[in-house]
Simulated assay, not measured.
Amino acid sequence: MRCAITSRAGQVIAYGRLLIQSTDEGQLRLDLQTDGGRYLEGGIIPQDGDLSEASQNLFRKFFDVWGMSDLTLTITMR
């Protein structure tokens, strides 16, 4: 899925795509790959498929990388 990460002021910080990757242990993880080449590993997706915790872990990585909180992830389906 294509996505954009925007600041609270509406400035696009990065464009990229969300991915579900398999770990070496066979678990699924929610990740983000930006068009600029950054790869951010998010959280593990539990068996019930709830993305809440996995996306929270990914958003914590946003702060580590861009040093901002209150970023918005917008998904575009085409």
Rank of each mutant, 00 (worst) to 15 (best):
M68E: 06
R17S: 15
Q47I: 07
D48S: 12
W66C: 08
G16W: 09
I20C: 06
Y39Q: 09
P46W: 10
F59P: 00
I75R: 12
A9F: 00
R29L: 03
R60Q: 15
L73F: 06
C3W: 00
G26T: 05
G67S: 09
G16E: 01
A54H: 05
T34E: 11
R8P: 00
L73H: 08
P46T: 10
L40P: 04
I13F: 05
C3P: 08
Y39N: 08
A54W: 01
G49C: 06
Y39P: 00
S7D: 14
R78A: 15
T23K: 07
Q21M: 07
G10Q: 03
D70A: 06
W66E: 00
G42I: 13
L19C: 14
C3N: 13
R8Q: 08
D64N: 13
P46M: 13
M77Q: 04
E25M: 05
D35I: 08
F62D: 02
V12P: 02
N57F: 03
R78Y: 12
D64I: 09
R38V: 05
D24Q: 15
G26S: 06
I13C: 06
I44M: 07
I5H: 00
S7N: 12
Q33G: 14
K61A: 14
R29H: 01
L32T: 10
L30W: 07
Q11M: 07
L30N: 01
I20Y: 03
R38F: 04
I45R: 09
F62N: 00
V12I: 15
S55F: 08
D31H: 01
T34S: 14
S55Q: 07
D31T: 13
S7A: 14
D31P: 04
R78H: 11
Q27C: 09
L30Y: 04
A9R: 13
I45A: 03
F59S: 06
D24I: 14
R60T: 10
N57V: 05
G26Q: 02
L73R: 10
A9V: 07
A14T: 12
T72L: 02
L73G: 03
Q21P: 03
D70T: 04
G10E: 01
F63C: 04
Q56S: 12
F63I: 06
L28D: 02
Q56K: 08
G37A: 07
G10D: 03
I13M: 14
I45T: 11
G49Q: 08
G36F: 03
F59Y: 09
M68F: 01
I5P: 01
Y39T: 05
N57R: 09
V65W: 05
D64S: 15
I13W: 12
Q11R: 07
L18F: 08
R17D: 13
G67V: 15
R8S: 09
I5Q: 04
